[in-house]
Amino acid sequence: MTDSSGVEYLLTAGHCGDFGDPFTTGGGSCIGTPSKINKTHDIMLVQSSDVTNFIYTGNSNDNVGVRVDGWDWVYPGEFLCESGATSAGVVGGAICNIKVLFFYNDSEDLVEAEQMNGQTAARPGDSGGPLYSASASGGAIAKGTATRSAGARLGFQDFGTAWRDFGIWIAS
């Protein structure tokens, strides 16, 4: 992500850390530290000087991923994929066929979705992982970040809320 001043960030779940916490890759390389957090909306920006428009969709050992071509609003009835680190490690890749059900009308402003084949939609450790749809050019359209899981259901924060809260968009 980037903002109007050109600062680059990684978008993740707000409950995954706090100001000053170091974020690292699986190999131990420093990504950055949180610089903006909205705990109510469960979103956080980790400032980093090395971001790209790429999300990982495979397991932690394969570096499989997809280019992010942009972001879009979430719509009830649309189908998304989720590629949190734990689930991708368990199933070997992204979990798809996740249908957006509804938006909660409360202070958290989360979105509820359900994996339509009865698979576990997200697991502990997937928090902050991307939810996305396919783009026309074969990449991904960012839709949000995972917040919580409950079997085939999951709650996530939509990218539009991160855009409204922080004024960010996809870095290219």
Rank of each mutant, 00 (worst) to 15 (best):
M1E: 00
L11S: 07
T12L: 03
G17S: 05
D21F: 12
T25K: 15
T25D: 00
G28N: 11
S29D: 12
S29R: 15
C30I: 07
G32A: 01
S35P: 13
K36T: 09
N38H: 05
N38G: 06
K39N: 11
H41D: 01
H41G: 09
V46G: 01
V46Y: 01
S48R: 00
D50Y: 14
T52H: 09
T52P: 13
N53L: 07
F54R: 11
F54Y: 10
N59L: 01
S60I: 09
S60M: 09
N63T: 10
R67E: 10
V68L: 03
D69G: 08
P76N: 02
G77R: 12
L80K: 01
C81D: 01
S83I: 05
G84V: 03
S87I: 08
G93Q: 03
N97V: 15
N97L: 09
I98A: 01
K99R: 13
F102E: 13
N105L: 08
S107F: 10
L110Y: 12
L110D: 06
V111Q: 05
V111P: 02
A113M: 02
Q115T: 05
Q115M: 04
T120I: 12
A121N: 04
A122F: 02
A122T: 07
P124E: 02
D126C: 03
S133Y: 09
A136G: 13
S137I: 07
G139L: 02
G139W: 03
A140F: 15
I141K: 05
G144R: 04
G144E: 00
T145W: 01
A146D: 14
T147M: 10
T147L: 12
R148N: 15
S149A: 15
A150D: 08
A152T: 12
F156R: 04
F156Y: 14
G160H: 11
T161M: 15
A162N: 03
A162E: 00
I168W: 02
W169A: 07
W169H: 13
A171P: 13
